[in-house]
């Protein structure tokens, strides 16, 4: 039973997952990049992207999910996101003020507008997406460890 569970759920779930994971991921990216013109942003989009990976984790089991995004990769992405955010702040700092806008503001409702908000959103998305998936993985691994001990 436990062997089967580690390999994931039934064929129906796996097939549907194959179809939907890409779409969820794409939707997450859309939410992140349009955070400054419509509701959403780095956190909401990051959560959706993390959910795409959690979906994969639930349907195919942890081995497949780790093939797509390994644990060390998660850690690297998470730290990179945080450092990127800080770097954006520091670029503004060199220009005069911490977090000061250094990019052109553009025309409202265009994709490339609102200055540093878009890069900030991308940095937050990296941090939140990787971080949330890491939390899910950590809790799943903890649960597996507990179950193994009970047997």
């Amino acid at each position: 039973m436990s062997k089967e569970r580690e390999q994931g759920m039934s064929l129906i779930v796996k097939t549907i997952t194959r179809l939907t994971v890409g779409l969820i991921l794409l939707y997450g990216i859309y939410i992140v990049t349009h955070g400054h013109v419509s509701p959403g942003g780095g956190f909401a989009g990051g959560v959706i992207i993390a959910l795409a990976f959690v979906h994969l984790l639930l349907a195919f089991g942890k081995d497949t999910a780790f093939k797509v995004l390994s644990e060390s990769m998660m850690s690297i992405l998470e730290s990179t996101g945080a450092l990127l955010f800080l770097l954006i702040a520091l670029i503004g700092f060199v220009g005069g003020h911490f977090f000061m806008n250094v990019l052109p503001k553009g025309h409202p409702f265009n994709l490339f507008s609102a200055g540093i908000i878009l890069p900030c959103n991308i940095a937050i998305c990296l941090k939140v997406g990787a971080g949330l998936f890491a939390i899910a993985v950590a809790l799943v691994l903890l649960k597996l460890a507990v179950e193994k001990e009970e047997k």
């Binding site: 690297i76 945080a82 800080l86 911490f98």
Partner: peptide, 20 residues
């Protein structure tokens, strides 16, 4: 002034990134 927050914050994430 902001560096007093930014320096430890950067230190924390650089440690997480490069510790291996």
């Amino acid at each position: 002034i902001p560096l007093i927050v930014a320096v430890p914050l950067a230190g924390a994430f650089i440690i997480a990134l490069l510790n291996q």
